[in-house]
Design a protein around this nucleic acid. Structure first.
Length: 211
DNA sequence: AAAAGCTCGAGCCTATAGAA
DNA sequence: TTCTATAGGCTCGAGCTTTT
């Protein structure tokens, strides 16, 4: 029967057994119906199926064991492929969002510089009362075309800050991700395949996960 | 007598060897 | 690369022994 050399498995004749296609087909059929047969059921299978009669019960047991293992590996591989596809798509969207936000930051930095400049000029003008031309020309403000003109008073600056904060918060809440632990997966960001997005979120992560 | 502890066999899972 | 087979570690249930 089976002998051991301490490192691998060999049959008596020095060769591994390769089950015939007919035998494999019979085993597969049975596996499809019952992936975890009891020893009684396996013996019954050997009795009922003549082409399996030359296979030892132990070998049948091992075959089912390995078959389940192969199935599990196959399922895991396909699950990982699916997660990979989602991550790739999410990465693309996040890169685009990052790019857009960086451009926005550059623009805001530029705007901030303009406002600072303007605030300085206004302060100098209001202190220097001898310079009428500056005071009277206060209505001719320079501003970017994207935003309506706003005064540089503390109230005006506060409104800009408020608007920026509101925009930031809407983005932050719009991309909120809840990590949900799934059976068989470690808790935390490793289990990326199962991110859950709150209803109504329109952020980038939400769009990515909806793929 | 009932609960607790121990042993043993069967089976599962993962990693690995080695032939086909 | 795939498939068959083994090793080793682990769990679980059954049966037996010991303790309370």
């Amino acid at each position: 029967m089976i002998c051991k050399d301490g490192k691998g498995a060999m049959m008596d004749n020095g060769k591994y057994v390769r089950y015939t296609p007919e035998q494999v087909e019979a085993l597969e059929r049975f596996y499809h119906d019952c992936p975890k047969p009891t020893s009684t059921r396996r013996q019954q299978l050997i009795r009922e199926c003549p082409i399996l009669s030359n296979i030892e019960p132990k070998q049948i047991k091992v075959w089912f064991q390995n078959r389940r293992c192969r199935e599990k590996q196959k399922n895991e591989a396909s699950r990982l492929q699916s997660v990979n596809r989602k991550l790739t798509a999410m990465n693309k969207l996040l890169m685009e969002e990052n790019d857009r936000l960086q451009k926005q930051v550059s623009h805001l930095v530029y705007e901030n510089g303009c406002f600072r400049q303007h605030t300085q000029n206004t302060t100098v003008a209001t202190k220097d009362t001898s310079c009428d031309s500056v005071v009277t020309s206060g209505g001719q403000r320079q501003s970017t075309p994207q935003h309506p003109p706003r005064d540089a008073s503390p109230a005006g600056l506060l409104s800009i800050a408020d608007e920026t904060l509101t925009e930031f918060l809407s983005k932050a809440t719009g991309t909120a991700i809840e990590w949900v632990q799934m059976p068989g997966m470690k808790p935390g960001p490793d289990s990326i395949g199962i991110v859950a997005i709150s209803h109504g979120c329109t952020g980038v992560a939400a769009r990515a996960c909806g793929l």
